[in-house]
């Protein structure tokens, strides 16, 4: 075991997510190169990096969409995520928000949330499941939170773009994840909306750990959390946003030679 891994195993006692020497290559191109990263419980982390730095691949590895060639991804005390597939990882309590909102368009708002509620995901259960009072209470809460009470029986397809974004957030909350992965949440948003989203993420972070992948430096600054810079599939720098922005290597990577 390498020194880093040794350090990791001592750390894993109190880390929520621990990536240890993860390498992913596509036809010889290394999307992730010996990437190691530690996330503390309750932490919010911003991950930035230029195009092709491996941000999305990292999210794919954590959520089980891509299996790494080498390395481990440890969640909680000793669950190795690389051995699990997407549904198993989702059931462990890792939620993922994609850049483009994906809701189930023909289903009603209510049904979208119902399917997302934490609970049994087995077909046998789903065939006979009836909506319980507890579920109804929880759904009412969520609907109120995302301001779609009046729209609960409308198909999600009829919602406006903004309402769909909120519905998806509602679905993520319904999952009650321990860790939330958020991919470029403010892409295409106005400054005001960006500000709101930063507030929202900070609120979410009060009860859950969050990893945010983002391009927008102003947004990352607004979050005010520890920043990890990826470059060519590995960690280039880590620290506060001010330290990062003054790091000559980061400047080199972002501004070019």
């Amino acid at each position: 075991m390498s020194d880093a891994a040794q350090a990791g195993s001592t750390l894993s006692g109190n880390s929520l997510l621990y990536l240890d020497g993860v390498t992913v290559s596509f036809d010889g191109f290394k999307a992730l190169n010996e990437l190691s990263l530690v996330l503390e419980p309750g932490e919010m982390r911003a991950v930035i990096g230029p195009n092709g730095a491996g941000k999305t691949t990292m999210m794919d590895v954590i959520t089980g969409r891509t299996r790494p060639d080498t390395g481990r991804v440890v969640f909680g005390d000793n669950v190795d995520l690389t051995r699990l597939d997407e549904p198993a990882i989702a059931r462990l309590g890792i939620g993922r928000k994609f850049q483009r909102p994906t809701v189930f368009e023909p289903l009603s708002v209510h049904d979208n949330l119902l399917l997302s509620l934490a609970g049994d995901r087995n077909p046998r259960f789903a065939l006979w499941a009836k909506e319980t009072p507890a579920e109804r209470v929880r759904l009412d809460e969520l609907l109120a939170t995302i301001r779609l009470v009046d729209d609960r029986d409308r198909p999600a397809a009829d919602l406006s773009h903004g309402q769909k974004q909120w519905l998806e957030i509602g679905m993520l909350l319904a999952q009650e994840p321990h860790l939330l992965l958020v991919d470029e949440p403010v892409a295409g948003m106005s400054d005001a909306e960006t500000e709101e989203t930063a507030d929202l993420l900070r609120e979410i972070n009060k009860t859950r750990s969050v990893v945010v992948v983002e391009h927008d430096m102003a947004f990352v600054r607004a979050l005010g959390v520890k920043v990890t810079v990826l470059h060519e599939g590995a960690v280039l720098a880590e620290g506060s946003i001010d330290a990062i922005q003054n790091d000559p290597r980061v400047i080199e990577v972002y501004l070019g030679r």
Partner: peptide
């Protein structure tokens, strides 16, 4: 075309917290 807007964001945040 109701805008969920900032108010919804706030209430969402409250519910989570």
């Amino acid at each position: 075309e109701a805008e969920p807007g900032a108010a919804a964001a706030k209430s969402a945040a409250r519910e989570i917290a």
